[in-house]
């Protein structure tokens, strides 16, 4: 089982869009996927029409009083399950702090799901906190959406600097341009500059598309509701890059699809 986190210190950069579409595409490829909506705002849960509520709240999960797999909900898509958000996740930091090894707590919570899932996708809240640290320690790959602005670059530097300070295992970082606008000179300049700084950047940039914004109206990943559209194409390219960076083996030979979309 691999763990992939869509993470950035900044908010509003496309983390949830990335997490839900990557999770959906992985499931469609035959991987058994769990998406954990760690953001108390519950946007990913909303997109999958799952109520953002976990019995006992985040504390029950973090303390192990309620097993993680008990709270999992199936989405409407094959192979894709969701661990919903809960408003109490805003206090996860406090609950983690009460644990003996808060940094490795998230990874340890997910470990028992290794037989059930090939991939866990974490949709993280913005911030740098104990929860983010726990995410960084749990993830095999960090997918970092970046809006090409100077401020974004600063937060990326902060993040990579922070990870460099880890002893032991570190996640691989794959940054990618999000809400990219090729017509803007600043975007083009910053995009040209970053690779020189040594951070791995995906070849795929996700442009600012209204279709992506409309996902919240459709309440489904854009890759599922408009698979032939432009946005879906970009996300597929990004998923291909993320998949190889995450070191995922070929998808398992799942049971035959007895049911196909009706014509």
């Amino acid at each position: 089982m691999r763990i992939l986190a869509a993470y950035n210190i900044k908010g509003g950069v496309g983390k949830t869009s990335t997490a839900v579409n990557i999770a959906y595409l992985a499931a469609r490829d035959g991987y058994r996927v769990l998406l954990w909506d760690l953001d108390p705002q519950g946007a990913a849960s909303f997109l999958f029409r799952v109520r953002p509520r976990v019995k006992g709240g985040g504390k029950a999960l973090v303390t192990g009083r309620r097993p993680v797999d008990d709270a999992i909900k199936a989405t409407d898509f094959d192979n894709l399950d969701l661990l919903p958000a809960d408003f109490t996740y805003r206090n996860l930091d406090l609950h983690l702090d009460d644990q003996r090894k808060p940094m490795t707590r998230l990874r340890n919570l997910l470990r028992p799901l290794g037989d059930e899932y090939d991939l866990v996708v974490l949709d993280c809240p913005p911030s740098i906190s104990l929860l983010s640290e726990s995410v960084l320690h749990a993830a095999d790959l960090l997918l970092v959406p970046l809006i090409p602005t100077t401020l974004s670059m600063r937060t990326l530097d902060q993040l990579t600097g922070f990870i460099a300070g880890f002893t032991g295992r570190r996640p691989r970082v794959l940054a990618f341009w999000s809400m990219f606008d090729r017509r803007k000179r600043l975007h083009r300049e910053i995009a040209a500059e970053l690779p020189a700084q040594g951070t791995e950047v995906a070849a795929t940039a996700i442009p600012a598309l209204s279709a992506i914004e409309r996902m919240s109206l459709q309440r489904a990943p854009i890759t599922a509701s408009a698979p032939r559209g432009q946005a879906a194409r970009y996300y597929r390219d990004l998923w291909a890059e993320a998949r190889s960076r995450a070191g995922l083996p070929d998808p398992p030979a799942g049971p035959p699809a007895g049911l196909a979309p009706a014509n």
Binding site: F48, R49, V50, R51, A74, D76, R219, G258, L259, A262
Partner: peptide, 19 residues
């Protein structure tokens, strides 16, 4: 021959597959 329908709740969320 199998046809799959979906039972949905008030959120239009599938709660069961009906085959």
């Amino acid at each position: 021959t199998l046809t799959e329908h979906r039972a949905v709740n008030t959120d239009d969320k599938t709660i069961a597959r009906i085959v």
